[in-house]
Amino acid sequence: MALLEIRDLHVGVEDREVIRGLDLNVHAGEVHAIMGPNGSGKSTLSHVIAGKPGYEVTDGQILFKGEDLLEMAPEERAAKGVFLAFQYPVEIAGVTTMNFLRAALNAQRKARDQQEFSTPEFLKRVREVAGSLNIRQDMLKRGVNVGFSGGEKKRNEILQMALFEPSLCILDEIDSGLDIDALRIVASGINGLRSPERAMIVITHYRRLLDHIVPDVVHVMSKGRIVKSGDKELALELEACGYGQFEDAA
């Protein structure tokens, strides 16, 4: 059984159909890359999987571990192991990163009937992960993403992913805004989380990220559909020829 199974998904945003009959199967252990022109619906797909309000699913199904994901509240999805690293992480003034991480982690654990982490245990975990991502301790004391640079915000997303240990990670343009060194740090953080139990969907415009995080499957998305799937060579082909050849297929 696939970890994530999307069947004939149709999604409307403000009376416009943005996802137009999308199918996708992702198995545990796999890394899927989704590439596609601006506005093709990649972020919309990631939002619908995470449960963001404001989208109307007019047809189709999303099953996660065999369960109907669309029936679940966003927090339920998170507790069950869905994680979205946002293309544009928001800033939350007045909530320190540390308090936010603790509240989120404990809420997920509570929903799974697991014991909450003790404070020392939690601090130790955060320090370890933050260290490996080159996130300074003083950033953890600031409001969530407040005053963070673009690259720091992206690293903060990966910090959360490492801490929450989700089974499905969706990374929406995690490489945008990252300098070369940060890209390497983030990619190695992500690679460190690859495991036979975990699947990843990596949304990107650039092959460079896929040199670091080598995908098992590459999909091309255009106008709300997956129009071609292939192995990692497809990314090279796209870089050479662009998306023009797929416009008609959509």
């Binding site: 995470a50 963001k52 966003p74 999805r77 946002f86 939350i92 936010f100 989120a104 929450f164």
Partner: peptide, 8 residues
């Protein structure tokens, strides 16, 4: 939504 997507 950001907070809910993180499990709250």
């Amino acid at each position: 939504f950001y907070l809910r997507a993180r499990g709250l």
